[in-house]
Design a protein around this nucleic acid. Sequence first.
DNA 1: CGCCGCATTGCAACCGATTGCAAGTTTCGT
DNA 2: ACGAAACTTGCAATCGGTTGCAATGCGGCG
Lengths: 332, 332
Amino acid sequence: MSVTLKDVAALAGVSRSAVSRTFTEGASVSAKTRSKVEKAAQELGYSPNALASSLTTGRTKLIGLISNNFHNPIFLEVFDQFTRALQERGLRPLIVNLTDETEPANSVRMLRQYSVDAVIVASSTLPPSFAKAFHDAGVPVVHTFGRSATSPEVHVVGIDNVECGRMAARELMARGYKRVGYLGGPKDATSAMDRYRGFMEEVEKYTDLEVSHSFADNYSFEAGRAEMLRLLEGAPADGYFCGDDILSIGALSALSDHGLKPGIDIGIIGLNDMEMSRWESVSLTTIHQPIKQIITSSVDLVEEMLKDPARYPEARIFPCRVIERGTLRPRS
Amino acid sequence: MSVTLKDVAALAGVSRSAVSRTFTEGASVSAKTRSKVEKAAQELGYSPNALASSLTTGRTKLIGLISNNFHNPIFLEVFDQFTRALQERGLRPLIVNLTDETEPANSVRMLRQYSVDAVIVASSTLPPSFAKAFHDAGVPVVHTFGRSATSPEVHVVGIDNVECGRMAARELMARGYKRVGYLGGPKDATSAMDRYRGFMEEVEKYTDLEVSHSFADNYSFEAGRAEMLRLLEGAPADGYFCGDDILSIGALSALSDHGLKPGIDIGIIGLNDMEMSRWESVSLTTIHQPIKQIITSSVDLVEEMLKDPARYPEARIFPCRVIERGTLRPRS
DNA sequence: CGCCGCATTGCAACCGATTGCAAGTTTCGT
DNA sequence: ACGAAACTTGCAATCGGTTGCAATGCGGCG
């Protein structure tokens, strides 16, 4: 079928080893043999079989990329960045779509069958135990957007969600909101709970605040919208921290249904600063998360793990900052 | 390092062949050996190395998934569908992000190195020659969202873009628009040109129309918005066919900047019917493209190619229909 | 009881590459 | 010109599995 090492060796009149060596960095081949081999390879249209070589080298350059969030537009940006960053380093993303599945067992088995060199868990909702399962199975793993910890069990790259919760609370208070609410992602999402914790921690320092909270079914426009519509049925707060931009945008849509103006009637602050939040018609005040750096850093970390698999687990936490646009009233 | 066939064979006290056979469908093994092997495998946590076996079987179950569109939110839906459909069939998507690259040579070489069983080119902008390059290299390929043709050189699954152009034109005319415009994707995108062709074909049948056209830099919100802003500087048309929903949404944002109401001051019809188009604040009248069926059908086709690689190229074209929402005035 | 046929099993070659080792060839200093 | 050091090169084993083939064992039948 396809042309192999042997064919090239035969045509070039050298041994298979010689061919192999001309295609591996830093092997000992004379200029003469090399050129003979290259000519033959050219002629036959040969390119080495990466999987066969992985058998002996133990490296496939395949990286499992796992996610469970295919409804939040931010993930298009995330995939774009990840796939490019990996490609630039000669690594290949093998995607696992985890929708409707929370058990790691299947993914672990599957990715081990394909001998991935490492795994990236790109999810802000999965618990640390998920990534841990790969670690336990001997597969190097980094959990991007994962729950940060002072002594992580696996590599984590992301933000301090608790601190973001505090930051949002402080921002609402600085603008004089007195009836504040947290509208978070699903209760089983670690990010939703961490942001909630930070938010509550901060608002509880004050006694003149009326605090409420609720959780959307998932991180999506529809869920954010539905939850805000529900809140508007009763007595809503006047300032909300929505745990994610796409929830915020859903919530904004609900406000608009009720003829309420964001930033005037009700304040909203999001988290992520995704592309859409900058759109004129949205203009969402939000907490910026440095996605690009997080992803670059994650892939850096993957490379370092490949060099030293026993590397001690590390948490890389990036600072966030508030981006002021139009959905909160001015600071008082 | 990891546990292999040999380890299991040793523990179970059988030959390596026996172990291999218990893990391959329909091989001849007695119940007794099978259970011995299964017990040993269980104990050692063995799972077969898919890549090693691919060496002899010639099947990796790896499918290259190539795209160059990571800025259009519709592609999040596309990736979701593709990855799930492939997984359900036991196939693994190996992603290639083609941003800023139009030459197939690199992708072909890379995917051949990884011995993918087949390739899916998911792009409405790449020319047929791109997919053809895989075919020529002996890699089965299906071009999803590709340019349809009566005698395709490779398998194509998608819609008839020319017909969609006509459909949009008819729709604008049925609603009494007289100064009509096409605001398409980039000029080098096959879909943009095909839609343009159909649109012009239809409007040129009438002499009482004033027709204009322009092309955005790419299929993105920003590009659609920028192009519409530019048009609004001069004398805009009163009814536009935007070659894609995300362009439409960008254009809507531009209208809103100028205080213009879609459906009242200027009509807009898009194409795709992506999730966002249904959002209240958008409510885009658009041409629905049956994404899910297209993707399922593409993956079906991949499976059939695996069975019969010499399969004769086929075009599977799905019908589209207009979804009426709020950005065109009522039919007159 | 003997023979036949079938299911099961292990041997060994092979898939496409890499690599340690030893033999052969250069290169270079003196 | 000679010998040692440094390169090159091919052989053969190996990576983790698969599979054709021949050998083995078994049951069943006459």
